[in-house]
Write a protein that binds this DNA or RNA. Structure first.
Lengths: 244, 244
DNA sequence: AAAATAGTGTCTCTGAGACATTATGTG
DNA sequence: CACATAATGTCTCAGAGACACTATTTT
């Protein structure tokens, strides 16, 4: 049996099959000043010269798409894994034959969330020789900028996914440090949903069930001190509702 | 400007880049007798000889993954598009380097839903030369069968997606004819969730808001006649809740 | 009439939103 | 004390589930 299988693998003659170049595209989100930002690259060459594009790169022969996405994220931010907390998940795959006029490129888009305290964005690598990635406000980009390839569709898909997911999970906490106040969390929701209509009191009550109070408090410029929370482990990525 | 771009496209020398074979895998669901079924192929050759596998095939050079999924679905069922109503959507992409021991194959998994009246499954093509696809009960397969490659993961991902999606959309109606009774719809929910605990009365009240009563009724063996409904257009794929 | 099924009524509980109120800090 | 913010209380409303009840068919 083992021999039959070995035989097969040896006999197997690589057939004619269509082959494609496989890449990952990243939508990297982070929040500053209650505004949702994403990392973009300004294209210096054709096609789509001068337009904004999402960072990305080829998937190596010995890695899967998720590994490649983490590697690209690290190359772009220079983050030591674990220094910045990060969350990466697959979004969707874009395979339209004409999406890159130069050749057949199939791209697995990923959603990446970087933690910030809401006051500053993570540093981006100044870029080797190629153009460096830069943070830009997502809603302004969507309103005013031209995006290369099918990257507008990828960006809106990522935004929809994030906006939907924080409705029923605590994924929003992945955009914050390990410990955070309800004020910070609320600002993340406002950033993602591009709104300022979130009642602070109701928000507190709604969230505290899935959070753990560290007992410590932190002060702001004015007002009462705010409690520091962490996400209760059982609510980290899975649903906040439907507690199994 | 046009010249500069043309110049670039001409000058563009195809670089060295890793290339992969791109395929689609299909999880095709249909319901019979309140039991969720999926289409499988029994493997006749190595690797995974004798195990069950999902149907699928290569993505052609001039089609995207979704088009290839529709083509494979048609080849497998012999359905004239529109004769059987069908729903196909992208699920996720599987790109682990070792997932096929023969070569580097990246597969875009798709979820397909076929309409039945709940009493019989759509015919599957008897297969050209290769093994024909066959319907099998999903929960029994997951409990008792060995699945080839990473197809167990794909199948459970498809099932999770479907089970979750029918909670807040009317996607379940894609497993039924254009017009259906609440009894049929309830049986679909029971099939997908593998349960029989759905109160008929509450189910009716919950669903009727998103349905349109055709005014016609249909009889069963016993009991009162049941009204025929269709899905109100505005609720077809998008959410039943959150009415914008 | 008896049985089975379709559909409605009723009650309770829970969660969300609107909004007021109390508590705790700073200048 | 004035002010700002955190957190809680209160009220209302809508939706879901448990369960009883009525209506409509077949045998």
């Amino acid at each position: 049996m083992a021999t039959e299988e070995e035989q097969f693998l040896q006999d197997y003659a690589p057939r004619e099959y269509p082959s494609v170049a496989l890449t990952v595209d990243l939508v990297v989100f982070a929040v500053k000043a209650s505004t949702l930002h994403a990392a973009f690259v300004r294209r210096g060459g054709h096609p789509f010269k001068g337009a904004l594009a999402l960072p990305g790169g080829f998937v190596g022969p010995d890695e899967d798409a998720l590994t490649a996405a983490w590697r690209e994220l690290q190359e772009e931010t220079g983050l030591e894994l674990g220094a910045h907390r990060a969350h990466v998940e697959q979004l969707a795959t874009y395979s339209s034959p004409g999406r890159d006029p130069r050749m057949r490129v199939v791209s697995v888009a990923h959603l990446a969330l970087l933690a910030t305290d809401g006051s500053a964005l993570p540093a981006l690598n100044p870029g080797t020789d190629t153009e460096a990635a830069q943070w830009m406000p997502v809603y302004e980009v969507l309103a005013n900028e031209t995006l290369a390839f099918d990257h507008r569709g990828i960006l809106t898909a990522a935004l929809d996914r994030l906006a939907g997911k924080i409705e029923y999970t605590l994924t929003a906490a992945r955009l914050l440090p390990e410990e955070f106040t309800l004020y910070q969390l609320r600002r993340v929701y406002q950033a993602v949903w591009n709104t300022d209509k979130l009642d602070a009191g109701n928000f507190t009550r709604k969230m505290t069930g899935a959070l753990r109070d560290t007992g410590r408090k932190v002060l702001r410029d004015k007002g009462a001190p705010a409690a520091l929370f962490t996400v209760r482990d059982e609510y980290l990525s899975p649903p906040m509702m439907r507690p199994v």
